[in-house]
């Protein structure tokens, strides 16, 4: 099976010898992009969240072969060189993580949420919209603050760029 995927902006031709491979296992075990984490492998924790064609999805419940032609962004593709994405910086500033294992998924989910543009600065909407990402360390307060802070930063950067 041949598969065309764009991963973090780079077009890739992938030969799959097994149709069972999920996007998560393709990224982690075959492309060695291990930033996306496997916390449950059943879409119940969000640690594997990546963007597919700009939408946040659980890569563990996505069959890689069905993604032919898609564009995938993972945590490895978020920063601009050494310059962190505003969501990444906000997670550090607000201590939005402890062990860090759910963090790539949290961050990709937050990036997806901000792209969706529906939560704004309402903490209740952010909490609800981030509830597909479980953090067993319980860093939710920092996560919520980080998402709101990053969304504001991104909005003001956009305004400035437009001006």
């Amino acid at each position: 099976m041949n598969l065309s995927l764009t991963v973090n902006g780079e077009p890739r031709q992938i030969v799959l010898d097994d149709p069972r491979v999920t996007l998560l296992d393709l990224l982690r075990e075959r492309m060695h992009l291990t930033g996306s984490k496997k916390g449950c492998d059943r879409g119940q924790c969000g640690a594997c969240t990546v963007l597919v064609d700009g939408r946040r999805v659980n890569s563990c419940l996505t069959l890689a072969v069905s993604l032919d032609g898609a564009s995938v962004t993972t945590i490895e593709g978020l920063a601009d060189g050494d310059r962190l994405h505003p969501v990444q910086q906000a997670f550090i500033d607000h201590d939005g993580f402890q062990c860090g294992f759910c963090t790539p998924g949290q961050i990709m989910s937050a990036v997806g949420l901000i792209l969706e543009g529906e939560a704004g600065d309402d903490p209740e909407r952010v909490r609800e919209a981030m509830s597909g990402n479980i953090c067993r360390c319980g860093a939710y307060k920092g996560i919520t603050e980080a998402v709101i802070d990053a969304a504001a930063k991104i909005a003001s950067d956009k305004q400035r760029d437009a001006a």
Partner: peptide, 9 residues
């Protein structure tokens, strides 16, 4: 229902 990620897929 579900989560934002699941609803997106």
């Amino acid at each position: 229902g579900a989560s934002a990620q699941l609803r997106n897929a």
